[in-house]
Design a protein around this nucleic acid. Structure first.
Length: 571
RNA sequence: UGGGAGAUAGUUUAAUCGGCAGAACAGUGGACUUUGGAUCCAUCGGUCCUGGUUCGAGUCCAGGUCUCCCAGCCA
């Protein structure tokens, strides 16, 4: 977990918390297992976009290897041509690069190994360890037994090696229809571990593969492909998630039968985040049902969504390195992720003033056509960021929330007769409140104290609040998109009878503010650039942004003690 | 009710051979402040249960409880 001495600096092997995987590897290093080498891989299936859960897995694989002087491969587990697409491959590559990881020239595909896999399958048949089964899919399921009852042998289980060899060859040549037969490993139909009840190695799929085209009509299953691919690549530690724990005996069995390089599979708990869903099935539904605008909707927990939202890759990495790597099923609080996002942005984001819900203010004693250029600090956390000029004039906008006609206790912003500081400018006092016929406050009249230029009073007078503002004549209009959690329920995966996780979608997860006013120095801000709008939060320029109208996404709000107080008072 | 895995503050975790249960996030209170931000200080709070071994148990032993995963020709 976070070490107070290192929170502000990038982690190194020395400061990053250890975990049980590192302990295992350290043991292997001491024992000279694998010749003192570490080589891992990140093996996504190209059938969806990467999300924050993958970021953890990516970090574990790439950083663990790097810390022991080893390498990490990127390998697409593309054994199912029906679900996989090039679009996903491209997106995954882009996302991992963006996160800052490099597999150099080691980009591989399980489909690179289809020939070798087939040769090995022939070898297993010759060893009498695999057979072609003509049971139908339904029959296979029946013969498999249940969790509590053993399975029974297929009537085809004892075909001769010659017959199996012939049948397998004919499967490969396309002489059978889909579902007509499969190649199965001959292990033990009575095993208490269902994965060992003669698992399927090859199934017939008359489908074109995005890389091998029509070369194959039989495709290896995950179990048959994965360990062997690891072996071919010289992987030492095959790190995967908990649900594969039951598969490890099978992983080991194949490698032992083949007598080839045998990596160690290690399982750890996948990441779960509160108020979000991370299953591929659910994420793809959100996209396909139009519940979000796409894979990169800023509300999505996808890497592309987070990129668009404004999460810095370094902060995601820090997060991924600080969540525990254990075998315990856990749900990380979203607040922890946001903590690391704020921590990074606080140090690096330039400060700007932006008024999201404008309230017009006229400074009555300020000369009509005067404009002053006020000096403003770009980042109090980073002196090198310098200063900028912000125009001040007679008519300004401030935030609606920064004024209350009848302020409760502890509200120390602007109110009738009260004096506050305008950031980087002057002290102003509210002298009059102008309302429309419905009684809504539409404009404030104020006076300013010319002696307080820059924000300090020569007589030592103190004010309790500092407000942000923009000059009406100089402000740029912008659209600001505010985001909240996509779900209102802490664990949207937990559904009762007749409920669906989409029932918990937060109707206020996106609120668009069309007419915001931002300071003129924001003109021409590039999509993807990140700023702090003072007193409000961190914002990122959206790709939809145009010169005429900038569009910002709120990445994460600043901590808001007043909002918290208000909430408590309302209770 | 088969097999596999897990259980330490609200959350995520640390604890060498059995030797003072330590952090972070969240919460609370305060200091400071030209962001009710940041920072700083303080504070709250924990070993799933029942026994046993031991001078001493989160750790070892016995029994129990609860949670997660597995019956795709998905990964």
């Amino acid at each position: 977990m976070p070490n107070p001495d290192t929170q502000k600096t990038p982690e190194t092997a020395d400061t990053r918390p250890s975990n049980f995987i590192r302990d295992i590897i350290a043991g292997h290093m001491d024992a000279q297992r694998f010749g003192g080498k570490v080589h891992t891989r990140f093996p996504p299936e190209p059938n969806g976009y990467l999300h924050i859960g993958h970021a953890k897995s990516i970090a574990v694989n790439f950083e663990t290897a790097a810390d022991y002087g080893g390498k990490c491969n990127l390998r697409f587990d593309d054994t199912n041509p029906i679900k996989e697409e090039q679009e996903y491959i491209d997106a995954i590559i882009q996302d991992i690069r963006w996160l800052g990881y490099d597999w150099e020239d080691r980009l591989f595909y399980a489909s690179d190994y289809f020939d070798q896999l087939y040769e090995w399958a022939v070898q297993l048949v010759k060893q009498g360890k695999a057979y072609v089964d003509h049971l139908s899919p339904e029959e296979i399921r029946e013969y498999r037994g249940t969790l509590t009852e053993p399975g029974k042998d297929s009537p085809y289980r004892n075909r001769s090696v010659e017959e199996n060899l012939d049948l397998l060859e004919r499967m490969r040549k396309g002489e059978f229809k889909e579902g007509e037969c499969v190649l199965r490993a001959k292990i033990d139909m009575e095993s208490p571990n269902i994965n060992l009840r003669d698992p399927v190695m090859y199934r017939i799929l008359h489908a074109a593969h995005h890389r091998t085209g029509d070369k194959w009509c039989i495709y290896p299953t995950y179990d048959w492909a994965h360990g062997q691919s690891d072996s071919i690549e010289g992987i030492t530690h095959s790190i995967c998630t908990l649900e594969f724990e039951d598969h490890r005996p099978l992983y080991d069995w194949y490698l032992n039968q083949l007598g080839v390089h045998h990596p160690q599979q290690i399982e750890f708990a996948r990441l779960n985040l509160s108020y979000t869903v991370l299953s591929k099935r659910k994420l793809i539904r959100l996209v396909q049902e139009g519940r979000v605008a796409g894979w990169d909707d800023p509300r999505m927990p996808t890497i592309s969504g987070m990129r668009r939202r404004g999460y810095p890759p370094a902060a995601i990495r820090t997060f991924a390195n600080h969540v525990g790597v254990t075998k315990t099923n856990t749900v990380i609080e979203l607040q922890l992720l946001e903590y690391f996002i704020r921590q990074h942005l606080n140090l690096h984001a330039l400060r700007k003033m932006a008024v999201l819900k404008p309230l017009r203010v006229v400074i009555e004693n300020y000369p009509e056509d005067q404009v002053e250029e006020m000096d403003a600090i770009n980042n109090p956390e980073d002196e090198a960021a310098g200063t900028r000029k912000v125009p001040f004039s007679r008519v300004l906008y401030i935030e609606q929330d920064d004024f209350m006609e009848d302020p409760p206790k502890k509200f120390y912003r602007l109110a009738p007769g009260r004096e506050v500081r305008l950031r980087n400018a002057y002290f102003v006092t509210c002298t009059d409140v102008i309302k429309d016929e419905d009684g809504n406050v539409v404009e404030l009249r104020c006076t300013y104290d010319p002696a307080t230029r820059g924000g300090d009073s020569p007589d030592g007078r103190k004010v309790k609040a500092t407000l942000h503002w923009v000059s009406a004549a100089h402000a740029l209009e912008a659209e600001v998109r505010l985001y909240d959690t996509l779900f209102t329920k802490e664990n949207p995966n937990e559904t009762g009878e007749g409920e669906d996780f989409t029932d918990f979608i937060n109707p206020e997860s996106l609120v668009v503010l069309e007419k915001c006013y931002i300071e003129p120095s924001l003109a021409g801000a590039e999509p993807g650039s990140r700023f702090q709008f003072e007193r409000q939060g961190y914002f990122c320029v959206d790709p939809d942004s145009r010169d005429e109208k900038l569009v910002f996404n709120r990445t994460v709000p600043l901590k808001d003690t007043w909002a918290k107080l208000k909430k408590k008072q309302n209770k």
